[in-house]
Design a protein around this nucleic acid. Sequence first.
DNA 1: TCGGGACCTCACATCAATGGCAGCTCCTAG
DNA 2: CTAGGAGCTGCCATTGATGTGAGGTCCCGA
Lengths: 118, 118
Amino acid sequence: MRIGELARRSGVSVRSLRYYEEQGLLTAERDSAGRRRYPESAVARVALIRRAFAASLSSRALADLLPLLEAKCIPRSRAMLIAERERLEAQIAALTQARVRLDEVITVVSEPDWTCDS
Amino acid sequence: MRIGELARRSGVSVRSLRYYEEQGLLTAERDSAGRRRYPESAVARVALIRRAFAASLSSRALADLLPLLEAKCIPRSRAMLIAERERLEAQIAALTQARVRLDEVITVVSEPDWTCDS
DNA sequence: TCGGGACCTCACATCAATGGCAGCTCCTAG
DNA sequence: CTAGGAGCTGCCATTGATGTGAGGTCCCGA
């Protein structure tokens, strides 16, 4: 399969597929003209990449994770994913805290005697 | 007060203070040598800016908001802040959804018959 | 008068994923 | 044989707050 077909079948732009390769997330053989050739399994691979991105993993984290997955090193894969989950939790907590602070600002601003210097 | 002292007293880098000015968040007069001179109230202003950033407002949003605050236009200020709060809510919801998807990935990877192509 | 420190502006780098363009090669249908 | 479509590489832009550095001005103390 060539890059255009993979893009169509996986719903990802050609540009992104090349980017995934650049980031070490997706490999491709080359034909005699230098064009990328993908096996059938590349569709599933791209789907996995998209799922990971949707789960807010960075390409860097995914690049670290994929070799573990390929080696079927489940405990280490799990450990890494759980670390990512904690990062995500921390981010959610930070935003939740930001929301509290925003509510404080709203309260302050809503006070009738509020002035800019306060 | 000159920029170095304001930086020290507000705990913000000189670079950031100049950035705040560039974004229209903080104004300064200039002395004969072209150096910024700040009134005492600038310390409180910077603190307000930091609070807004901590509440995840962008400099753009804050630049829109500050004139309303200065005009003590409380209803419109509130409306803008509440819109920001909704944006924050949406962001939190997106990350929470990402966490769900990450949990799905963790589940998939943890299956004993998992292979990379799946 | 000289050195150094504080300040100035301008401008590029960072991080991430993607869009988009230029200029090239290559293959295939008409 | 030729036109066009698909692919290639390489590069710049985006967003936002900040770091960093070059090169220049200015002022004060020794």
